[in-house]
Amino acid sequence: MNVKPYLDSTYLKTASQAGLSEAENTIVVKNAIAEAVEEGFKLIMIRPEHVSLAKKMILDADSNLLVGTVIDFPEGKSNLESKIKEANEAIENGADDLDFVCNYEAFKNGDTALIKQEILIGTQIGLANNKTVKWIIEVAALSDKEIIQLSALIKNVVLSNFKEEDYASVFVKSSTGFYKTQNGLPNGATIPAITIMLENASPLSVKAAGGVRSYEDAVEMINLGVKRIGTSAAKAIAGGENTTNQY
């Protein structure tokens, strides 16, 4: 199976997280973009400040590579006004996909009204600008019951407020890949979590991110029914290698 059309090649570290200078980190970003172009992946997923750079490089290469970015990353705790501002800036800079971090802590605390509002408004902004919208629910922070409930909440908001032809442009996504777990527990996509998401988000699509570390993992996720896979080791995975990358 050719997994490349499913892969969102990902680099989301800041310079400080990577232990690099800003200039050095920008070189890493440029290399990631160039590799995604060369390998024919679906998308390059980068931080908002690099979207304009990616669009220029892709245009210069006459490539069909998509550009995705994260909104309110990685904790999702910002207010709705801040999320809207960040999303609009990403759109202006040319992002094709907007991966919002859902305020999962507010959800866990029972504030479903806030969650419904951010899902509605964020999705409206994306779809109105012909963008793909993904909602990151951070499965490692949730119980199985909460994964069920949050996946279903997102689905119900979309089904209640948007047209059927819009459904394919809205995803529920497993993880940021940056969540800190205890005792070495998985911090991203697992087969049980993805299965729960698929069962409760349908007809919305699911993106598996965090924890896909081999070609076999990718194929298993695709066979389960995921439509996109986020990984910082896309080339290795597509080439049949295993990786220890955390997201």
Rank of each mutant, 00 (worst) to 15 (best):
D217R: 01
T243R: 02
R213T: 12
K13D: 11
E38I: 11
E89D: 13
L153D: 03
Q117C: 10
E138P: 03
G239Q: 13
L153K: 02
V67Q: 03
V37R: 02
Y167I: 09
R228A: 13
E39H: 09
I91K: 03
K13L: 15
M57H: 03
K134Y: 06
M221A: 08
E199P: 01
A95G: 07
R228L: 12
D62G: 05
K180C: 12
E86P: 01
I119S: 03
L59R: 14
A234M: 10
G184N: 12
I121Y: 03
I44F: 04
V212H: 02
W135P: 00
G126P: 01
T244G: 06
E89N: 13
T231K: 03
S143K: 12
L185I: 09
Q124N: 14
L20P: 00
Q246F: 15
A23M: 13
L80I: 15
V28P: 05
S143I: 08
G188P: 02
A15G: 10
I121K: 09
T231S: 15
T112K: 13
Y104D: 07
G177M: 05
S205F: 11
A90Q: 04
A238M: 08
F107M: 10
K4V: 13
G240M: 10
S143F: 05
N161F: 06
M57N: 04
V219D: 09
L224M: 13
V219T: 12
G210P: 00
L153E: 07
R228I: 11
N187M: 09
N161S: 14
A209W: 00
K131F: 05
V219Y: 04
E86L: 11
I119Q: 01
N64R: 13
D217G: 05
Q246P: 03
R213W: 05
P192C: 10
E105I: 14
E146K: 05
G177P: 02
S9Q: 06
E38C: 10
V37N: 03
E118G: 07
K42S: 15
G126L: 04
T14R: 04
A140N: 02
S78K: 12
I137S: 05
